[in-house]
């Protein structure tokens, strides 16, 4: 029951987030400060999601070089900088990750 409440609540919130500025009758505009703050939403929030995945696989801090998540992330960053291609970097770093796990 609670799960359905969460699902529908999330559905409503996400839709409102997407729709609110598409509504022509909405007179309010975000202040410049609010806009600047939201401009950091993508790097800020996405990084926060990545952090624990990369540094804490199996819920334990792992800063060793044989942590495949950490190594593959570095490879992914390198690939993006080098190739400038989002999709290619994703696929190659994932391939690297699975090879590494199979090898280690």
């Amino acid at each position: 029951m609670m799960v359905w409440a969460v699902i529908f609540g999330m559905g409503i919130l996400v839709f409102l987030n997407r729709y609110v500025f598409l509504e022509p009758r909405l007179p309010v505009r975000l202040s410049s400060n609010a806009r600047q703050f939201l401009g950091f939403a993508v790097p800020g929030m996405l990084t926060a999601i990545c952090g624990p995945i990369v540094f804490m696989p199996d819920k334990q801090l792992n800063l060793q070089w044989d942590n495949p998540y950490l190594l593959s992330s570095l490879v992914a960053i390198g690939l993006v900088i080098y190739t400038r291609n989002t999709l290619l970097s994703m696929l190659l770093s994932m391939a690297f990750f699975f090879l590494l796990r199979w090898w280690l």
Binding site: V42, I49, C50, Y69, S72, A76, T86, S89, M90, F97
Partner: peptide, 18 residues
């Protein structure tokens, strides 16, 4: 380790923004 695909996707999206 499918969860690495999340990290890979986000890294690919974040890096060009930095």
């Amino acid at each position: 380790g499918l969860d690495f695909s999340i990290a890979a996707t986000f890294i690919a999206l974040i890096t060009p923004v930095v």
